[in-house]
Write a protein that binds this DNA or RNA. Structure first.
Lengths: 110, 110
DNA sequence: CAGCATCCGTTAGGATACTG
DNA sequence: CAGTATCCTAACGGATGCTG
């Protein structure tokens, strides 16, 4: 059976900036991307690394990020299954954004 | 009477990064900040500049941003009333973040 | 392990009428 | 003009059990 929580990619956003914000928004999105900046990671690893997230949210985010070509998913037909997530070129290019947010956070939220 | 939609500042976030993300997230937040980068603006001006937003959302965002010291509000006892919103030092310091997001948006979302 | 399904409460966001 | 109030819907997010 198909998925229940099928993702609906919001089309027809106004400007690219809004679309970017739409992507960046989301409680866990940037944390996941940030975590993946360190290198590829398996599902369970991510679940442990991104403190506080739960399975459903992680699955959801990963799917959305995959759809948006921010991350890529590689599954291996092992038993038990192995799935590796890593940033795409597009995903990696978010690094400067991440850096600036972190810099701002350190200086201001303290 | 007090406000109905009283803002509840989410306390006890984990790390500063999460807090920053919590601030940045929000459909209109960055657009408003971006608009205010150009200089101080009145309520109605903002409502017109931030395309697609409605009164309730603008009020809500402005209040939240004021609470977080990102913008400052100056009201003048004229008739009809005049209220000017402008970025604080803290708000202006978000400029690099904005720049990076926009750069990324232009390159990737196209 | 990787993940989908289900139940469920909370928040975000939208439309719009109204007031000092 | 600068908001407030009210009504509503759609996402977001959390907990947890189950399966190939």
């Amino acid at each position: 059976m198909a998925l229940k929580d099928e993702k609906k990619i919001k089309k027809s956003q106004t400007c690219p900036f809004q679309e970017a914000m739409d992507l960046i928004s989301g409680k866990w999105t940037m944390s996941i991307i940030n975590t993946l900046m360190a290198g590829k990671m398996r599902f369970k690893e991510l679940e442990r690394s991104v403190v506080g997230i739960n399975t459903r949210m992680l699955v959801k985010e990963l799917k959305q990020l995959e759809n948006r070509k921010i991350i890529s998913r590689k599954a291996f037909a092992t038993m038990p299954p192995t799935v590796e997530y890593s940033l795409t070129e597009k995903g990696t290019s978010l690094k400067p954004v991440l850096v600036e947010i972190q810099a701002w956070a350190m200086q201001n939220v303290v």
